[in-house]
Amino acid sequence: MSSGLQACFLLHHKPYQESSVLIDVLTQNSGKISLIAKGVRQQKAKYLGLLRPFLPLNISYSGAGELKLLNHAEAGNAEMILPGINTYCGFYLNELIRYFLQPGEPYPDIFLAYFTCLQQLKTKQPIEAALRNFEVQLMQALGYELQLQYDCLSHKPIKPDLNYHFDLEQGPRFFQQGKISGATLIAMHQGHYTNQRQLNEAKWLMRQVIDFHLQGKILQSRRLISKLQQRPVCKSN
């Protein structure tokens, strides 16, 4: 079975045998796929330099099993060159997708969210909001949607000036000493953050949510980013 050209991003690549590469890609219509790209590490290979993360690609592949064969690859639109520490944030997105997505299941929403997030990472603007929006959209597309609109006990709409405790399975409930403000929950729902406090609280909450679903697995890129942040030269994200 051979497919037509399909838009995708490379998530991870690993050398295989003398001149081949095993790659994981996120495609627009078929979700996450593992492919073998034969002969691409030779000096005169057709795709030399093309199979790399964050570059929009159009590929075609064939094969019926879990590991497909890459038939053709060409570069898509403008390249995503991520400046500085944003590269590590890009690795973080890739690791999340590699871990959470089941192979072969289509997730067009995640592809779109990933593309949007990369475009924001490409600029030198603050990127925390972009990362949080991606995380919320990822959880939503996977079926772990966060309930951010109503108090899970009283079923009243969230009020911006109250504090809430967030139960990872049920949702927010009013609690005076809660760590999350109503304004943050509303900002997360709307994807629009107005101050640093909201961003910090959203970061804390999404970390809890993601760790809960990771079931004990450690995200290496997060470990690396926190190591980078320990050094005074890198700014926080």
Partner: peptide, 11 residues
């Protein structure tokens, strides 16, 4: 080289 997805960090 630094490659978080392969678990290679600064150390």
């Amino acid at each position: 080289r630094l490659s978080p997805l392969d678990g290679i960090g600064p150390d």
